[in-house]
């Protein structure tokens, strides 16, 4: 039983991280209706830039701050060079543009910082919590716990931002109907920059946490692919949904890998989340928390 709980908790904690990556997707989708495939590349770029700067001798906090500023600059560039010229295009063209953007960012990150994997130490110990281990026999790492708290805090802040602030309402208006939002005077340019910066910062946090756990390497971009099933289950436009989806995917993936995996040859982590999401879609095509899909001719 303790083993089951440990696997479950490990999965849930991994799920929080998936949720964090998925959150970046949701932010952009919610505010501009664009499915940003480059989110994974942004996670990679953020982590790599911060680590690279740190290894050049910059203190960690300064490296992170510099990366954050760089992320905002990147958001402005993306808005100018890609989103603005593609404003009137169908969502699928925008999506494909972000596919191209993913390649550019990955290439850029590696061209500047090199192809080698790097280690990142955030100064949070990665050891099991002793009191929990002693009392229940379940090992939960301090690092995972801190990472989850950071992720939860981010999700809380962003939810509040979207629902309570004026800018948040503007973002939702743009997502709902870009033309109508423009005509009532919402500054689209600024809204897009804000939302891409926010997504970039979320990506940076996700990248730092994932990077500290597994090393900063190219496979970080693949973590983003795991965000797809998370988004399907949680719904593309819901911040709590991203979180819930992350938990479901994280937990079920780990449990399936431990309990079903050995029966059919192992390695099922690579596809299990997608098949789970697929089954989910057949029941609820708009995800757990997504907006109801209403289609008109």
């Amino acid at each position: 039983m303790a083993f089951f709980v440990e696997v479950l908790v490990g999965g849930l904690l991994a799920g929080v991280m998936y949720g964090l990556v998925a959150l970046g997707f949701v932010l952009i989708y919610k505010a501009s209706g664009v499915f940003n495939f480059a989110q994974g590349a942004m996670v990679f770029l953020g982590a790599l830039t911060a680590t690279g700067l740190e290894q050049q001798g910059v203190p960690l906090w300064l490296a992170i701050a510099m990366t954050a500023i760089f992320t905002v600059v990147l958001a402005i560039l993306i808005e100018r060079l890609i989103l603005k010229p593609l404003l009137a295009q169908p969502p699928i063209s925008l999506f494909m543009a972000t596919l191209g953007l993913a390649f550019v960012i990955e290439g850029l990150a590696q061209a500047v910082w090199g192809n080698n994997a790097r280690a990142l130490d955030l100064g949070i110990p990665d050891v099991p919590l002793e009191w929990l281990l002693d009392s229940t026999g379940v090992g939960v790492s301090t690092f995972d716990l801190v990472a989850s708290i950071i992720a939860l805090a981010l999700i809380g802040v962003l939810s509040a931002f979207f629902s309570l602030t004026k800018t948040g309402r503007a973002l939702r208006a743009v997502a709902d109907d870009t033309k109508a939002a423009l005509s009532v005077g919402i500054p689209l340019e600024r809204v897009l920059i804000i939302v891409w910066s926010a997504a970039g910062l979320v990506a940076l946090v996700a990248g730092l946490l994932w990077g500290a756990r597994n090393g900063v390497q190219y496979s970080l971009t693949l973590v983003a692919l795991k965000a797809f099933p998370v988004l399907i289950i949680g719904g593309f436009s819901s911040i709590p949904g991203a979180f819930a989806g992350g938990l479901i995917i994280g937990a079920s993936e780990k449990l399936a890998d431990v309990y079903i995996g050995p029966m059919i040859g192992g390695g099922i982590e690579s596809w299990f989340p997608y098949v789970l999401a697929l089954l989910f879609l057949l029941v609820r095509p708009e995800g757990l928390f997504g907006d109801r899909i209403i289609r008109r001719v």
Binding site: G107, Q110, A111
Partner: peptide, 24 residues
């Protein structure tokens, strides 16, 4: 070494974006 493959990635992605913007 490694630069060429990365530049290839950048050009690859750049071309896709340029195409979508200029000639969808």
């Amino acid at each position: 070494s490694g630069i060429t493959s990365n530049v290839e990635l950048i050009i690859f992605g750049g071309i896709i974006i340029v195409f979508l913007v200029v000639e969808p």
